[in-house]
Design a protein around this nucleic acid. Sequence first.
DNA 1: CTGAAAGCGCTTACAG
DNA 2: CTGAAAGCGCTTACAG
Lengths: 339, 339
Amino acid sequence: MEDVAEKAQVSVSTASRILTRDRNGRFSDETRQRVLNAAREIGYRPNLAARSLISGQSNIIGFVSPRVVDTPFTALRVLQILTHIEIACSERGYHLLLSSPRYVNGALDEHYMQLLSSGYLDGLIIHDENVNFSLLEPALEFGIPAVVIGNREHPYFVNGDDYLGGALQAEHLLQLGHRHIGVIGLPDNSHYAARLRLRGVMDVASRMGVSTETFYRRDGDFTSESGLAAAHYLLTHHPEITALLVNNDRMAIGALQAARQMGLRVPQDISIIGFDNLPQSADTTPPLTTIDQSVELWGEAAVAMLLRVRQGEQPVSRMMDTRLVIRETTSAPRTGGLR
Amino acid sequence: MEDVAEKAQVSVSTASRILTRDRNGRFSDETRQRVLNAAREIGYRPNLAARSLISGQSNIIGFVSPRVVDTPFTALRVLQILTHIEIACSERGYHLLLSSPRYVNGALDEHYMQLLSSGYLDGLIIHDENVNFSLLEPALEFGIPAVVIGNREHPYFVNGDDYLGGALQAEHLLQLGHRHIGVIGLPDNSHYAARLRLRGVMDVASRMGVSTETFYRRDGDFTSESGLAAAHYLLTHHPEITALLVNNDRMAIGALQAARQMGLRVPQDISIIGFDNLPQSADTTPPLTTIDQSVELWGEAAVAMLLRVRQGEQPVSRMMDTRLVIRETTSAPRTGGLR
DNA sequence: CTGAAAGCGCTTACAG
DNA sequence: CTGAAAGCGCTTACAG
């Protein structure tokens, strides 16, 4: 920068002001040109660390998603969100720092704390789906502006409407005529979204006057293996089941395998509906009926919201569009009754 | 930091030295304790931006993967690698900065250049698979230590053995007795890996004395849709084909759908072999035979290698284990001859 | 073993 | 419209 100033025959202050597009103080067009040219010739690029030190701004946004035991559980959804966060950040000139804090002995890992206090972060997008612990609180303690994905207990969040999604799942199956339904869920005290999805299911049943006594529940753990096991269990113990309502697509894909292994045709013998509409869900055999939550829009929404929070505004949280995607794994139950 | 020094009744210099575990200068245990305690009580955490400014070290490692047009082409593999890079970084106290540079009018985007010159990066892991442009060169110009994934023209790389993988694909199919083989590849002038895979295929054929005149090739573009289209084309135009050898799993999954749509049974009527062993490839119907390249180990390997490069060492590049994973989409061709 | 002082590369009141 | 100077929070020769 000194070199630039010298070459343009101005002071370092002037160079700095022109290069940072200081809104105050106008400069003669001529000076500006001299500085800009000099910078270009020298190939000057600002040192962000120095700028960050003094301005308190780093132009770095953090995205954190907890690592739970060994399960990168919602990996695909996280990737989708991450991809779009990266695009949104880069369009706005921000860099993206990624971290996946874990819990060791019930405490957040030191590395995350260290990041929060590093001065590196202008803001944080927190993927905070787990009921049992929060990545948000420490961030708030450090005064870092934050926006949350996956949980609605924070003033600023971006989410799908999980309750509505669950309702759509149940409505679809019930309208098709299914009454004996296997529900593959997630443990109640794990994720916000899972709880809401199931609540939506139950509320629709009661609204439609359908008894949930012939709903049989078996929980999985996000993975397709657990979906396979749960489906196998349900279909074996409750042969009257004609449809499987599954809490996420990964487990639904497992359920699809279970049906195949048991020699059941989908959807003729058994209907299956998932939740998430992963990219791969259109490619299953047969293609999966599921719930879409426009995750491809979440990243942009989260970044935009975060930047407004930084500026002291109070943006309103967003519930993204949720809709039923009917493909080929659902149909009316066979009239013949039991399989 | 000043507060810590004051509280511990030492100079700022001393506090700094103790807190950074300066290898030189020993300190009386008592002083050290005083400083450490003071730091703990105050909840002192270093400002990394300042440290970075002076030391020239940021403790940030960058991972970049190019965004090619609108195709987040190897998205799943990238995620797998990214996940493990993140783990490896965090275990070593490094943070991870993510960027996905694009090309605008043939030039790398300004945002990437800005990142390179920001002083934020201690090193770079570059996912550089595309033959047509390189993210590596600009990094080297800025003198940033770098390690490459997906390309072996750089001194330091981590890769799978794509040539061997292609050879394994072909060998498997040929040993089963297939001679009329549809090859779904990628354009020759796109990716290093794709080219090598195909070369392995061809070399094995000639080594086994099998004519490749009954190999029919049709290229896709990574996506399952393109795999579906290519498979459909091949199976329609060359009904004598008994096996499909596909350059990646995403396209293989599309091929699986094509077979299904055409009423062909896999593997009885048509065998299919993919490449990558994506997490979802075990969950297809039927489960996909494919090539595994231990991608779950690449992240750790890349980070370890990068850190050694930073220290001025010259680590040897790594070619990761590549092996055939036989599942249920391949079998001997039907003896009856044509379908 | 410990401290005073300079300096990393930038920005920003404060003067003019 | 422009410059001299202080300072962001830390580290590191240089002395003692």
